[in-house]
């Protein structure tokens, strides 16, 4: 079964953790994740500038490791990311901003990538809110 997973909440929201646990369980069950799409506040989950207290789970790091280790397509919505200050090298240079906080394995792209993922997946599962 092919899954497309969309995340609408930041890394500190319980729903971000729920999405990650679901994604892990999907792969463990032998299923495929065609794309992870991080939209709205979900773009914060891809920021490399998040500092999590030592006694808490570092969800942003766990997401990054999960995407890298499984060589998944982790797409961050470019419009949502720019308005929240989540920039990769190209965008920081384009808008002359002093910091870059989006690196591999993440990729900035448009909403069309979500549409495309929905077309090629059997199921779209969205996570967001609390």
């Amino acid at each position: 079964m092919k899954f497309a997973i969309a995340l609408y909440s930041a890394a500190h929201a319980p729903s971000s953790r729920r999405a990650l646990r679901f994604a892990e369980a999907a792969l463990a069950g032998g299923h495929e994740i065609v794309r992870l799409f991080f939209y709205q506040d979900g773009v914060h989950s891809a920021s490399s500038n998040i500092v999590t207290p030592q006694d808490e789970q570092d969800l942003a790091q766990q997401w990054s490791t999960f995407v890298s280790n499984n060589q998944l397509d982790g797409v961050v919505c470019i419009a949502a990311a720019l308005r929240r200050g989540v920039l990769n090298n190209d965008e920081a240079a384009r808008y002359q901003r002093p910091a870059v906080n989006l690196q591999a394995p993440w990729e900035l792209s448009g909403l069309g990538q979500l549409h495309d993922a929905i077309q090629s997946a059997d199921r779209l599962i969205c996570f967001g809110g609390p």
Partner: peptide, 11 residues
Amino acid sequence: IDYPAFVDLSI
């Protein structure tokens, strides 16, 4: 249910 069951339900 646990997460593997969540995946099964979604299918």
